[in-house]
């Protein structure tokens, strides 16, 4: 999909354009510009979509001023939500199911007293974000498959070829070629590595 000069998508149900901070490969596919409507990006290029990336309708990028999202070749996002204040990178050939949540930042502090002043000051138009809240990047290496309703928490790295079972909550790193499942997610089995003799 080569974007036209006005960056308007064909047959988009949402009355918007693909923002300039989204770098889209000519052979990537975006269903709707609504996917970028929650972004508050200040970087010139904040979101990169490589060749063959396909984003389906409920995918929502909620990227803060300094956030960066990189999506690798032929990765499919079928309704994920990406909350990003630092960096989220998704490798090539990823399959990301519906309602998957990536959050690299909690956006509000653990301390209830600190949250209280932010909530008391909050209005109706701006998201409630504490800019001091630390963000820790999320990295998915190539060929990762994430089941539906999964939450991936700040700082998590998922190794190449791994699978996360549906409704899991991933709180720590996942090694390569491993299946994890559960809330919190635990290793349930190993997967064959490419080139390894099959059992």
């Amino acid at each position: 999909m080569a974007l036209p000069a006005n960056r308007r998508l064909p047959n988009d149900w949402y009355d918007g354009v693909v923002p300039a901070f989204v770098e889209v490969h000519a052979e990537a596919h975006i269903e709707t510009s609504f996917s970028f409507s929650a972004c508050r990006c200040e970087r010139q290029t904040a979101i990169r979509l490589a060749r063959g990336v396909h984003l389906y309708s409920n995918t929502l990028f909620d990227v803060g001023p300094q956030g960066e999202v990189d999506i690798g070749e032929c990765a499919m996002l079928n309704g994920a939500r990406l909350i990003c204040e630092s960096r989220i990178s998704i490798g090539a050939y990823a399959a990301i199911s519906w309602n998957v949540i990536f959050m690299d930042c909690y956006r509000l502090p653990y301390d209830p007293a600190a949250r209280r002043s932010l909530l008391l000051a909050a209005g109706h138009s701006q998201p409630i974000v504490d800019p001091r809240e630390p963000a820790r990047p999320i990295t998915l290496h190539d060929n990762v498959w994430i089941g539906f309703d999964v939450c991936i928490l700040p700082g998590v790295t998922i190794g190449e070829g791994s699978v996360v079972g549906a409704r899991s909550v991933v709180t720590s790193d996942v090694p390569a070629y491993t299946v994890v499942a559960g809330n919190p997610a635990r290793v349930v089995r190993a997967l064959p590595q490419p080139g390894a003799p099959s059992a």
């Binding site: 949540i101 959050m103 909690y106 653990y110 209830p112 949250r115 309703d149 939450c151």
Partner: peptide, 8 residues
């Protein structure tokens, strides 16, 4: 009061 509840 003052509870934070995450997504999902």
């Amino acid at each position: 009061d003052d509870v934070w509840i995450g997504p999902n």
